[in-house]
Computed example of a mutant assay.
Amino acid sequence: MTIIQNNVVINKPIGDVYAFLADLNNHEQLMPENIYNWTSTVDEARFTIKNMAKLALKISQRVENKEIVCVPSEEAPFEIKLAWRLEEQGAGTKATFVIEAQLNMMMKMMASGPLQKLVDHQVQRLKETLG
């Protein structure tokens, strides 16, 4: 299992950060420019990663003010789980974005760099979006 993660501290109450992340409609704001054909509901999102793949994700678990977990809702190129984990940090919130992917050695060499960039981009955009 390959685990890729990054975190950021946001100067907002944990409830505000959780409410934003618990709605997949908001996740489009966190995506890099190479994501297009975005459609979403509160529980599901579909999009295309330029020159890579189409993905459909659904929220499989919500633990209020703690964690939001997404898994593919259709067949994906590899087994993957995306999770936002939240914890209070002073007056703010520490948000950690974790991608767990079942990658063989070849896929790991090809995908781990872009996945790390995605994680880094999303935590930075979350901080910019929520201030």
Rank of each mutant, 00 (worst) to 15 (best):
K108L: 07
A101F: 09
I68A: 07
E67M: 15
F97I: 01
V69S: 03
L115S: 01
E75V: 11
V71H: 03
L82V: 06
W84Y: 13
V63Y: 02
L118P: 07
L57Q: 07
F97C: 06
N104I: 03
A101E: 10
P114V: 12
P114C: 09
L82E: 10
E75Y: 05
I59E: 09
R85G: 00
L82W: 04
I80H: 06
L57N: 08
G92L: 05
K81M: 14
E74S: 15
V71I: 14
K117G: 10
N65S: 05
K66E: 14
A76S: 14
E79T: 13
C70Y: 02
Q89H: 12
S73T: 12
M109S: 08
L57Y: 12
P114G: 13
K58I: 10
T96R: 13
V63R: 12
Q116Y: 04
Q102Y: 12
P77A: 07
M106L: 15
Q102H: 12
S112H: 07
N104A: 07
M105K: 09
P114F: 12
P72E: 10
G113M: 10
I68C: 06
A101L: 09
A101P: 05
A83C: 11
L82Q: 08
M107S: 09
I80P: 02
M110W: 02
G113H: 07
E100P: 00
P72R: 07
I99P: 00
E79W: 05
M106Q: 13
I59D: 10
K66C: 03
Q61P: 07
I68T: 03
Q61D: 14
E79I: 06
S112M: 14
S60H: 00
A76Q: 05
L57T: 01
I99C: 11
I59M: 11
I59P: 08
A91C: 01
L118R: 09
M106K: 13
M110N: 09
I68F: 03
S73L: 11
W84H: 06
E64I: 10
L118Y: 09
K117T: 07
S60I: 00
Q61C: 11
S112D: 11
E75M: 14
G92H: 07
K94V: 00
M107H: 05
E88W: 04
M110I: 14
W84S: 01
S60N: 04
V98R: 05
C70N: 08
T93Q: 04
R62L: 10
K94D: 00
F78R: 03
M110Q: 13
V63I: 15
R62E: 03
P114Q: 11
G90I: 04
E67L: 15
M109P: 00
T93Y: 02
P114L: 13
S73W: 08
S112W: 04
G113E: 05
K66M: 05
L103Q: 08
M106A: 14
M109I: 09
